[in-house]
């Protein structure tokens, strides 16, 4: 019996290894480009740095066909519902890359208009800091993402700026626009 279970473990783990290997070299990315980081994203994607070497050269502009969401550039509060919608439309398994310091923490835009880190809205797997990050930095982040995909790990935590701790994503679900309006009007 023990032999059987270890054999099945052996096969499933080999299977997931193979799947991870296949997935990490065929990243279909959705570039959610909003701001300055888009310029470095362009540079990384174009011939000079050539992100295609890592199997991530094919941007899909449909969230339903992509498995990595690149959030490139500042997310304002006006944009936040759009980002959440795009994330929700993506199929599992999905990963999120926060590209640039604005998406990681809000950067130096600590003001009324800007979301202080997209991890308050959607779970983030890889953070690439820099304002904007250099293409080398982006490629480094991409390789870290590949490692994560190989292991089959996905982030599920959201950051709560009020308590300053990460909480599982499902506990923060249901915080909607209509609820916000109700609260602010009462």
């Amino acid at each position: 019996m023990s032999f059987m279970s270890s054999a099945s473990n052996f096969f499933t783990s080999k299977m997931s290894d193979a799947l991870g290997w296949a997935r990490k070299y065929s990243i279909f990315q959705y570039p959610f480009v909003t701001a300055c980081c888009g310029m470095e994203y362009m540079s990384t994607a174009a011939g000079h740095y050539d992100v295609d070497r890592f199997g991530a050269g094919f941007p899909r502009f449909s969230p339903r066909q992509s498995d990595v969401l690149f959030v490139v550039g500042t997310i304002s509060h006006k944009m936040a519902p759009v980002l959440k919608t795009v994330y929700d439309q993506m199929c599992e398994p999905k990963w999120v890359v926060a590209f640039g310091v604005c998406t990681c923490t809000g950067g130096f835009y600590d003001n009324y208009a800007t979301v202080m880190g997209i991890d308050t809205i959607i779970p983030v797997d890889i953070y690439i800091p820099g304002c904007p990050p250099r293409p080398e930095n982006v490629i480094d982040g991409l390789m870290k993402l590949q490692e994560k995909i190989q292991k089959g790990e996905q982030s599920r935590t959201l950051y709560d700026p009020r308590t300053k701790i990460g909480r599982p994503a499902h506990l923060q679900q249901g915080y909607s626009v209509s609820q916000h309006i109700k609260e602010s009007s009462s």
Partner: peptide, 9 residues
């Protein structure tokens, strides 16, 4: 801030 979605802070 007056966020549309996510936590209020």
């Amino acid at each position: 801030r007056q966020p549309l979605i996510g936590p209020k802070y």
